[in-house]
Structure formats: structure tokens, C-alpha cells
Design a protein around this nucleic acid. Structure first.
Lengths: 230, 230
DNA sequence: ATAAAAAGTTAGTTTAAACTAACAAAATAT
DNA sequence: ATATTTTGTTAGTTTAAACTAACTTTTTAT
């Protein structure tokens, strides 16, 4: 079994991984608020346990064992977030802190029950995929709102990180998952987008916000008469 | 804030307290499976924090601050047990281990929500009182079944400790809280009781079991015709 | 191409919480 | 009343996980 500390490093390794799955000591240090030499020591320990590939001065990478462990921790986190929202009535900006603690609970029974009560959900309240029972994550290929062309209509599917302030801001703007947005204009200078949703004429979203929103293009399925079964 | 380790000592101090509220170093050592010198050191630390009264070679005793802290931890434990049974469908013999971990979660919001969803319960699934929001416990004065006289009818109100094996045994015997038992006979030699419940003619309960069951005498309220409001 | 900055590493220290060995006090039994 | 056993304490060790200071390697900028 791994300690809470170890689990937190494993999760950070997973969450900070780039396309190649690589992370630097420095990034982990900043993310966890732990000094670099401490991180370095822990990486050597996790390398001993065959959880990370470690070579001096090279980027860090989880082994397949490490990725699985990370997936299982994140599964517990996201299932719990979903449970807190769906069954207990918490809002999406309140659940991260609680799930951050409950993800370390050792009780397969408990999380299986949650999964069952929720009907085996595939995504959490922020639109992130819930890893399966083996720790495997099925990545969803969404686009960032900031990469969408003017004139397009998209559906908001997920937020890229569940930062408390971002979630509060989105809520205050009436933005939640599932909503449809039309990109009316994009300011070239700073990337601010003018969008329309909820029948509101126009709202402004800064580039910072647009980079955090994951969307998919809405195919305007025009239902033809002949396709409607009677 | 106190660490997990500290919280476990505080809880043990509370649970092992005799009528005077006193506990020995040895008892804590046995209960927690931690060697006496370690316990001794922790007691000095908790004394520094004004959580226990400590004097060399004297019994240990929680301060009022300590009792309050213990009450608040036990509140979290018992609320969680109740939630697991009432809202998640766990049985009374599965919840202790899970609650043992969740009692350390730091999130007033989370436990307030549980309390609310349960409708502010006063007892947990084993009949133990749930301390109030200030950590105060209202003790219920029940009798041990082993102290009941032959011929008496009692109601099973609580089990004295939520030991896994005991709970499984009781379940297998069809015994649960609220049930009424008639004490048919008491074997003088070993204290075995012959009891009747659930319309079963007679069941035997060992002294060991009878010492763990908390009951109250059933006042046979014979409802007279004149008392029934129409 | 070299100097400066950033990132990574090593060595040694600190704190919490466990341990063992050895000793002291209190309780129990003869 | 004294010897033995049990309980409590002290001193010193270990491990996990943090830290600082100092040094090395790699990256970036001039």
C-alpha cells in the first residue's frame, strides 16, 4: 500500500503529464508546494517501487504500474465528486476539496457502492472522464474554446481544471456543462471572445477563460420529415 | 489541527474511559496496538496541547477540551455510520471500518450535509448516541442484558461495542435493534440466558453476548378502551 | 561561445511517530 | 514484609517526509 504522500505525488505525475507523459521535478514541486529536493527524493523512492521511470536530469514518467495506480486514485476522486453533486446536493465548485481527502480512503466496497448508486457514470461533474475499475482512462477528444473559429456553435463539455475561482466565475455567468455557445467574434489582440448562449445577446469571455473550456462542435442535425418515424 | 495519530489517541482515551474518565497507558497501548513508550510520549504531547491531564504514574484523563475534541471526532464517525446504513444500503457490520477512516476528514460542510440529509439523527446504527455539534454526548442509561432478571421483557436498544464478529453473530441469530426479548431462564453456572423473540420458542445467548447487549425494560402499556381517542 | 539563469541533485537537518532496551514505581502474591 | 509481576518511564534508534545549503547539469540569453 502507498502512503497519502506517495498517492499525492502519483496523482501530480499523472495530472501534469504532457503528450509524451513526461513531467519535470520542478512542475511537481510547484504543483504540490513541496521543495525540489523533497520531490527528488520521493521520485527515487517511487522508482524503487517501479512506479516511475527515473534517470538523473531526465524528465519523469509514470510506468504502466504507476499510470494504473494514478487512474485508480483519480477514479475514487471523480466518483466521489459525482456522488457529492448527484446524491448529496453539493455544487460543482464545492466538491474538489472534499474528494481530495476521500480519494485516499481504502475501501473498495465503499467506492463500488458509490459507482453502483450513480449507475456507473463515465464523467464527473466537471466533464472529466472517470477511469474504469482497472484504472484505465478513456480520453475524450474535445477542443479548447479558444481554438474554435468565429461563427461556430459548440457545446460546453468540460472544464480543463476544476479550479475553485474558475468554477465560481462560470456559475456567476450562467455557464454550465451541456450549454450551447455561439462564437460571435474573436478579438485578435487579446483573444477575448464574444459569445452568445442562453438566449443572451452577447457575453465576453477572456482568453484565460476560453483556454479552460472544452467544447465540441454542434452538428446541426436538421431533422427531415422523412426521417421521423411515425 | 490534530494529526490522524493524535485523533486516534484522543478517541481511544474517550472510549476507554471508566466512570471517573480515567484510562491507563497500558489500556491505550493494547487498544491501539502501539507500544507503551510510544503512548507515553504521545500523552506528554497531548498534555502540552491541554488535551489530557498527565502526571507520572497516575491514570490519564481527558481535559474538557479533550472531551470536546473526542466528541466531535466520534460525531463524525457515528454520523457517517448512520449515513452508510440509511442512505447507501450498507449493513451495520460493514460500516465501522469505513467510518474509522472518514472520521478524520476535515470538512464541516460534508458532515453538516450528512446530518441534514439524515434529519439530525440522535443515535447511530449500533444504538450509540451521536454527540451534538459542540461535541457533547448525551448518555443513554440502558441496562446490560446480563443484569436483567428472569421473566422480564426488554427491548434491544444498542450493542456496547461494534465488534465485527459480534454484529455478524447477532445478525445470524435474527437479532437487531428494536427487537423485544423475553428472558425465560438464566443458567447460574455460566450465565447463559434462554430468551424468546421473533415468536421463536427459545434461543440461547452466552454471557459474553449478554454483556454486550444494552436493553431497556418494556413497560407493557395496556391500552384501555377509555384512553383511545376517537 | 560563453555567461547567467533555471532546473536538478546531494548531503545533512528536523519533526512526527513508531520502535527496543533498560530502569523505576506500583500492584500483587507468597 | 518481601519478592515477583505488571505497569510506567527514560533514553536512544529508525523511518517517512519535510526542510536548507551547497553544488552540478542543462537551458537560455547575450
Amino acid at each position: 500500500m502507498n502512503t497519502f504522500a506517495e498517492e499525492n505525488y502519483i496523482k501530480a505525475l499523472f495530472n501534469l503529464a504532457d503528450e509524451r507523459g513526461e513531467v519535470s521535478v520542478n512542475e511537481i514541486s510547484k504543483k504540490l508546494g513541496i521543495k525540489m529536493p523533497t520531490v527528488n527524493g520521493m521520485m527515487k523512492k517511487l522508482a524503487e517501487k517501479k512506479i516511475v521511470h527515473y534517470e538523473s536530469y531526465k524528465p519523469l514518467k509514470l510506468t504502466s504500474k504507476g499510470r494504473k495506480l494514478a487512474g485508480l486514485i483519480i477514479r475514487k476522486h471523480r466518483l466521489m465528486e459525482m456522488y457529492l453533486v448527484e446524491k448529496m446536493g453539493f455544487s460543482w465548485d464545492e466538491v474538489h476539496e472534499i474528494a481530495e481527502q476521500i480519494e485516499h480512503i481504502q475501501s473498495p466496497k465503499f467506492f463500488e457502492k458509490i459507482d453502483e448508486l450513480l449507475g456507473h457514470p463515465k464523467i464527473d461533474p466537471h466533464g472529466s472522464p472517470i477511469p474504469d475499475k482497472k484504472g484505465a482512462v478513456s480520453w475524450l477528444q474535445y477542443d479548447k474554446l479558444c481554438d474554435i473559429k468565429q461563427g461556430t456553435t459548440v457545446r460546453l463539455n468540460a472544464v480543463i481544471h476544476s479550479n475553485l475561482e474558475l468554477l465560481k466565475y462560470l456559475t456567476s455567468k450562467g455557464l454550465k456543462l451541456g450549454i450551447e455557445l455561439q462564437v460571435i467574434a474573436i478579438e485578435e489582440y487579446d483573444g477575448t471572445m464574444t459569445v452568445s448562449y442562453n438566449n443572451k445577446p452577447s457575453e465576453y469571455l477572456s482568453q484565460k477563460v476560453c483556454e479552460s473550456l472544452l467544447v465540441s462542435k454542434v452538428t446541426n442535425k436538421i431533422i427531415k420529415q422523412k426521417d421521423i418515424k411515425t
